Amino acid sequence: MVSTLMAHDLLWGMSPEQLPADAPAWVIDSLSAGQPVVVRRAVSVAGQVAVGVRGRLREQRYAASMAIDSMTRRVQPEALCHVDSPRDLPALRALKQLRPLLDRCGWTWGVSGSAGFELASGFEALHEGSDLDLILRTAQPLSRVHARALVAQLDAAQCVVDMQLQTPFGAVALREWAGASSRVLLKNASQACLVLDPWNPQEQAA
């Protein structure tokens, strides 16, 4: 089960009893309200998964560990691509605008961040100034030329859109891969390192 859980997955079932004794009150309130937690990209001990708890405020983010056997539900970002919301906000309008483009791109994509949290849980997490966070599961290399073209298309949306490329070896920001720097930051469960090619992590910067 541990190997199947991926960063940005939303999980239900964590109870306040799994929190450390010094956890802030808002963290306890979030779990007591039935909110999901999000899987973090971090190493965990056997039987646990690294997760993050969201609060109502942007700065309210709490790193914790959840017992895998307490999980009652899991929603992955790609399950949220075509979930609609009654709310009218720039991030949700941008998602609707970009759906046809992303559906045609040939890659598996998904919704993460505040938009993903709200669409999956029903708890309001977006506001007028929220960015739209997306992921693209790129098992095979995405060329820098295609990355630049994709950035240009995302920049035509109604809000700022941030996309992470999920390679087999970790995640890299689309905008960074589309940029001019030869090396980009690749993040995985154990480290963040500069690489020349996110699909070939042996090519690491010295």
Rank of each mutant, 00 (worst) to 15 (best):
L5S: 05
W12C: 08
G13A: 14
G13R: 15
M14L: 10
P16N: 11
L19S: 08
I28H: 12
S32W: 02
A33Y: 01
A33C: 05
G34K: 06
G34L: 04
Q35V: 12
V38M: 10
V45S: 07
Q48G: 07
V49M: 02
V51Q: 05
R56W: 08
R56E: 13
E59G: 11
S65D: 13
A67D: 14
I68T: 10
Q76P: 01
H82E: 07
D84L: 15
S85A: 14
S85G: 14
P86H: 03
L89E: 15
L101W: 05
L102V: 13
R104I: 06
C105G: 01
W109M: 08
V111A: 09
A115F: 02
A120T: 12
L132G: 10
L132K: 04
L134H: 02
P141R: 05
H146Y: 06
R148L: 09
A152L: 11
Q153W: 03
D155W: 00
D155R: 10
A156N: 14
A157K: 00
V160D: 12
V160M: 12
V160L: 14
L165R: 05
A171Q: 15
V172Y: 00
G179Y: 05
V184G: 12
L185W: 15
L186R: 06
K187E: 12
N188F: 12
N188Y: 09
N188S: 09
A189F: 03
A192I: 13
N200R: 09
Q202S: 08
E203T: 07
E203N: 08
E203I: 14
Q204Y: 07
A206S: 10
A206R: 05
